[in-house]
Every structure is written in C-alpha cells, then in structure tokens.
Design a protein around this nucleic acid. Sequence first.
DNA 1: TATTGTTATACTCTATAACTATA
DNA 2: TATAGTTATAGAGTATAACAATA
Lengths: 161, 161
Amino acid sequence: MLQSAIIAKSNNMKADKETCAREILETVPAVMRFIRTQIRQSGKGVTLPQFRTLTFINRTPDAPLSAAAEHLGLSNPAMSRLVDGLVRSGLVKRSAASTNRRQLALSITPKGREMLECVRGAVRSQLADSMDGLAKEELEAVSHAMTIMRAVFDAAKPVGQ
Amino acid sequence: MLQSAIIAKSNNMKADKETCAREILETVPAVMRFIRTQIRQSGKGVTLPQFRTLTFINRTPDAPLSAAAEHLGLSNPAMSRLVDGLVRSGLVKRSAASTNRRQLALSITPKGREMLECVRGAVRSQLADSMDGLAKEELEAVSHAMTIMRAVFDAAKPVGQ
DNA sequence: TATTGTTATACTCTATAACTATA
DNA sequence: TATAGTTATAGAGTATAACAATA
C-alpha cells in the first residue's frame, strides 16, 4: 500500500500502537455514551445490554447462554438475569438444546426482532445524522478503521477471561 | 485531499454515512467491552463509570457536579452517587465553589490521580498489545478515524439531553 | 467428576420524584 | 422563582459463591 504511506507522510502522521491506544481510550467511551443515549431515547424501554444481547441472539441461532455471556463479556449469572428480563418482556425464548439438555437454545421472538430492528434503525439513523458534516474521505477513513478494529477486538478475548 | 480519493477508489470503498453508522454500532461495543474488562482486571477495584469520572475531574479543575454528569451522559442524582463512592474511596474531594455556594468544585486527590494513572496505563498497554499485528498504515487509519470521531461525538450532545 | 445454568446475596449504576439550600 | 445538588425509592446490571441437573 504505497499510496497510504504517501498520505501518512504528507499528513505528517506518526501513529504507533501507544498513540492509537490513547486515542481509542479517549474516543470510544464518547461514542458509546452517544449510542446508549440513543437507545434510551428510542423510547422502547430497552437497555444497552439488552440491545446487545438481542443482537447476538438474533444472529446466533439457538445460542447457548454461555455464548451470549462470553460475547458480552459477562458472567453466566449476569447473563441469566439479563435473559430473565428479555423473556419476561416476550423478546426472547428459552428452550432446551436438542442435543444436550444442560444447555439452552436461546432464540429471538417476532416481537423481539421487531424491537431490535426498530431500535437499531433509530440508533443508526442518529449516528448517520451526527456524521452529516463529514467529507467523503472522512467517511472512508472511519469505515476503514472500523473494519480494522472489528478484526482486532471481536477476536480479542482479553487474557484471564 | 486528492490522494485519499485515489486510495478510496483503488480500494473500491463505498462508505456513506449509513454504512459508517452500521459499522460503528457493530464495532464500538466490542471495543468498549475490551476496555471495561481491562479496567476490571487492573485489579484496582474501580469501575468504568468511576474511571471515566476520574478522567473528567482530573482534567477539569473544580468541576461542578452537573458538568461531570453531562460529560458522562448521566443524571445529576446518578453522578452524585458515583461521586459518593469516589469520595468514600478517597479518590475525589468535594468542595464548595468559591463563587457560588450552591455549586460543587470537584477535585481529584493525589491517591485518585495515582489510581487513574495506574489503571489508564494498564488499559492503554493492553490496548496497544492487542494491536500488535497491525501494519503501520492500519495504525494510521485507526488514529485518523479516532480524531474524526472524537470531533463528531465529543461535541454531539444528542437531542433531548 | 466436569459442565451448564440458576439461585442467593451483595454491590454498583441509573432513573424519576421530592426535597434542601442558595441565588 | 430558578438553579445545584442530595435523598428517597425503585429497578437493572454485575460479581462471587453455592447449588441443581445433566453428561
């Protein structure tokens, strides 16, 4: 990628891992705050952990509880409680796995899917609006970085977990 | 920025606001999960909201309570409780503002600053480690995007707040 | 015995409503 | 009366420890 190198040089950037780490720690919580606020303001009465759990269950057919817990970085008891709430609200269904009766098979209900789409749409649209002033190049940069970071942090199960 | 345009074209990217929004919503929670886990694993007994509050108070001399609440996107009562805990732990000091006795002047204690530096250092170093495999160009991309996003979301006080 | 999940218990986080003190 | 913060109350999020059921 010669061209990237040229740009980097012409912009006088000097990004090393430590700089990136500092900037991520400065930036990501602010974005998360925005997302959490938008989820709340969607008025659907769903919280961020519930939203994340719904997202995971929606794309993971017959998800066992521990997979959901692991994805969100929670303990099994915490996830069990979370799922309690989602089941009580009729958004998620608990079934026993067919192959192993110890294990759960979590699934999203039609109501849950509708809720998920609705909230996700609202948040996406607010996120998009907030980026109204960005130039095409800036959007490319954000998009590219998100792809890189997803590869790094989706995989990253921090040591000790 | 002609060169960026060339790269964008050569990489066949097509990032619009909606795509970025989708990717942010997919990526940022995973990074946040990593950060929260690392804060916990620093073993200092400090939580993410406490860490964020400490960070804000550290760089905002004599911060009023409401400024801290606003920065984190919390209600004043929620922040009051958070500060309770930090004061109880000896990390933050509550004083009355000199000009207005209704208002607080929050400050970080030496112990608080030490704690903050320690946890922040640990998290930064784990973040840096996680990016070990990235090429120079990828680090530049992340760094650049973080700068753009900070400008967007630091300012963005979502509607209704 | 090891694995999967739940219950028990105890905090922290967070909101809204009601209140106090100051301006 | 309006503002800054706290207290009251309630519920969600989260952990560790202990437990039950299954493999």
